[in-house]
Amino acid sequence: MPLRRWLSWPLLLLLGAALLLAALALGSSSVSWRQVLDLLLGREVPSWVRTILIEVRLPRALLAFLLGAGLSSAGAALQGVFRNPLADPGILGVSACGALGAVLAIFTGLVGWSTAALPLLACAFAFAGTMVVYGLSARAGAMDSGDVMLAGVGVGSLAGAATALLLSLSLANYAIGAQILQWLMGGLDGRGWPHLRLALPVMMVGWLLILAHRRDLDALLLGDAQAIAIGVDVRAVRGRIILATSLITGASVAVAGVVGFVGLVVPHLVRMVLGPSHRILLPASTLLGGAFLLGADLLARRVIAPQELQLGVITAAVGAPIFVHLLVKARRGSA
């Protein structure tokens, strides 16, 4: 294990760097690898190349990395809090709640009033959604994986229904309806520095909050009673982790819509190779998650170029089989 651990850090960094380079070099206008290198080394490049790389591709790539890193850490933390390897912002309905908040911000016109309204409402709804899912599943006593999933599905579909309702109500008003539809499509097409500036601070706060609780998250794996016995304030830790994951999910939903399965797939892969200890799991999920979404966005851009695939299609294609695999494994474990 220690050798694997030491090897995995440079490998993860290398993977991220390689994908970042690829994201800069590949795209609909033909920028050569050489020009990318020239720019990175501070040499002279044509101004249109500079504009494409700095104003279009770089922020989009960084944003993809940021969202992947954030959603993966949030997934890992939620799995710890719910003691359930199937937990993920998408599956627990947290993303759907965040989306409802965002759509509400557009629907009510709050967005026109302040740009911060959309991420703010997305975070607030994500938080409320997680609390409801947690309350429903904890009420049933021990947090059985079935209960958590059922609560998540229930809350998620309720939020989805409410979103659909708002959408159909807004269709009469073309401007708002189009805005909502466009936002609901999600993905990173057309996202740039302003989106990055909006998401980065919120996600950093959430990420740092999670990282500060890495040992408490390990303790929670042993169950509430043991966690309290070793001096972890279980209720407070749960509350803070739920807040942190809501910030991350809300910010990510606000800039790119619902991107599912990232928080499920990445921590799962990391656990298989490096074990479940959060001291390792969280930073490794951050790096792998960033690389994963960067790669997924690259595929979304290139597979049917010049058109774009939806980012969620790629992540679901990878994530859904892993989800089913985990579900089958959990069933067998409980039988």
Binding site: N84, P85, D218, L221, L222, G223, A225, Q226, G333
Partner: peptide, 10 residues
Amino acid sequence: PQETQIPFEL
């Protein structure tokens, strides 16, 4: 406490 199931391979 009494035996609790730990869902991860710690």
